[in-house]
């Protein structure tokens, strides 16, 4: 089979592409969404765990019937996980995919691609 890291002496100079404005823009768009979002959910999760471990009395405050703050914050973790997932899907579909596929199609038209998967 072909080596996974086949020589990149293909038709495309990746270092040149890396310096292009459209690629830099793609990278910036990607990172400016995923990095802050990751920081946000990690901090929010750690804050929640610290609250549960060290401030149980706070979490025990009853809000409605037998439903207390701990349960609400826990369910809020589920909710933010679902929301961030939805937000990311919206972001990639509307902002990221058009940029990445433009570059991909152009490079593939120039003959760039993985070494072919093994044939038999």
């Amino acid at each position: 089979m072909t080596h996974v890291n086949a020589p990149h002496a293909g038709p495309v100079d990746y270092r040149e592409v890396q310096q292009r404005e459209d690629f830099k823009e793609l990278r910036k768009t990607h990172r400016s969404f995923v990095f802050p979002m990751t920081a946000f959910f990690l901090l929010w999760y750690i804050a929640f765990v610290i609250a549960a471990a060290f401030f149980p009395d706070f979490m025990a405050i009853k809000v409605w019937g037998n439903i207390n703050l701990g349960l609400i914050l826990g369910l809020a973790q589920f909710l933010t996980t679902f929301l961030i997932t939805g937000l990311y899907v919206w972001f990639t579909n509307s902002k990221l995919d058009p940029k990445s596929s433009a570059i991909r199609l152009e490079l593939e038209a120039r003959g760039a691609g993985l070494p072919e998967e093994e044939k038999h």
Binding site: H8, Y14, Q18, F23, R27, R104, E108, L114, E117, K119
Partner: peptide, 22 residues
Amino acid sequence: AKQAEMEIRSLTGVGAEKATEH
């Protein structure tokens, strides 16, 4: 050059999607 190739592939999927068409 390898770093550039990896970064471009990871973000655009160049080649990766074609690889199974046969």
